[in-house]
Design a binder for these strands. Structure first.
Lengths: 160, 160
DNA sequence: TTAAAATGGTTAGAATTCTAAACAAATTAG
DNA sequence: CTAATTTGTTTAGAATTCTAACCATTTTAA
């Protein structure tokens, strides 16, 4: 078996573990990991737009919209269209949302975090660095693959 | 920001990159990564059951069923119920399925693999080992959390 | 100033993935 | 041997996530 295949399999296991935990979280607390993440980010950043949240947790706007569609009717979050720029939608966490955040555990398995924290400092750093490296190796391809970007660059060039 | 939060963010980026690639793959070749993975595994292992595939690529049986539901009508795979044990369903890849496998690229970004292969041997090993370690740290929780296992053990004990 | 382009958000439609529940078939135990 | 359990698969229903298409609004450019 090729090395990168082993890597892929490990990745799938991790993805699966995260997904399974998210469902458990949902059953226990009524919130999935993405929902919790969105809620936490709105709370942390105060008055934000959909786009800000999307980019800060690395999801598409459409995905954030669909997560908000689940949070809003439950009264955890408020959407408020801006009067100055009517395209923009401001997001606010309600008191109920704050309570939900307080009551919910971390969006990663407690067990994992416990184990992680018992590692030596340098080991933790090394684990994080490796993950970031893999992410980088995978993201790079996105950047130079965007046709939109290319058009913009050409235009920029033409106006120099 | 806590270290494990940084880890989680990197993980999300990686998951996203894999998902985006899978969609691109689908547009280019008509097969998504999971579909390709299932197909490849059936081909590699010959006469297998749904359950075997599920465990070999770390998905639930239900998920494999839904992937097969997409592969079968396209004539890439054949399901054949066993006459000996009628619960079991044998899986076979058709010639069309074989062609699809041959025509399709790897289920991971070529770009990533290229980058990965330029790394020194020890670096590759280290990356894989780290991923496996994280997977292990996340999976472990599953194993000792099963109430079914507990009941079985008690029963086993009683019959010793 | 008016037409074209960019921006922000949502909707539509699809794939993956899970758990829970159903079902049939096979195995085990009283 | 019959009842209970286990096993293998599927169905149902839900959440996440994407891209593509769409709309309304704002900004830019001819």
């Amino acid at each position: 078996m090729k090395k990168y295949e082993e890597l892929l399999i490990s990745l799938r296991k991790v993805i699966r573990a995260i997904d399974i935990y998210s469902r458990k979280l949902n059953k226990d607390s009524g919130l999935t990991s993405p929902q919790l993440l969105v809620l936490q980010n709105i709370a942390a950043q105060g008055d934000v737009m959909v786009k800000d949240i999307a980019s800060s947790i690395n999801l598409s706007s459409a995905t954030v919209t669909s997560i908000l569609d689940r949070l809003e009717p439950r009264g955890l979050v408020i959407r408020q269209r801006s009067t100055i720029d009517k395209r923009k939608v401001g997001l606010h966490v309600t008191q109920a949302g704050m309570d939900a955040i307080k009551g919910a555990p971390t969006p990663l398995q407690e067990h994992f975090i416990q184990r992680f924290e018992t590692l030596a400092e340098w080991e933790q750093t090394q684990l994080v660095a490796t993950m970031q490296r893999i992410a980088l190796m995978m993201d790079a391809q996105d950047i130079d693959a965007s046709p939109v970007l290319e058009l913009n660059s050409l235009q920029d060039l033409a106006h120099k």
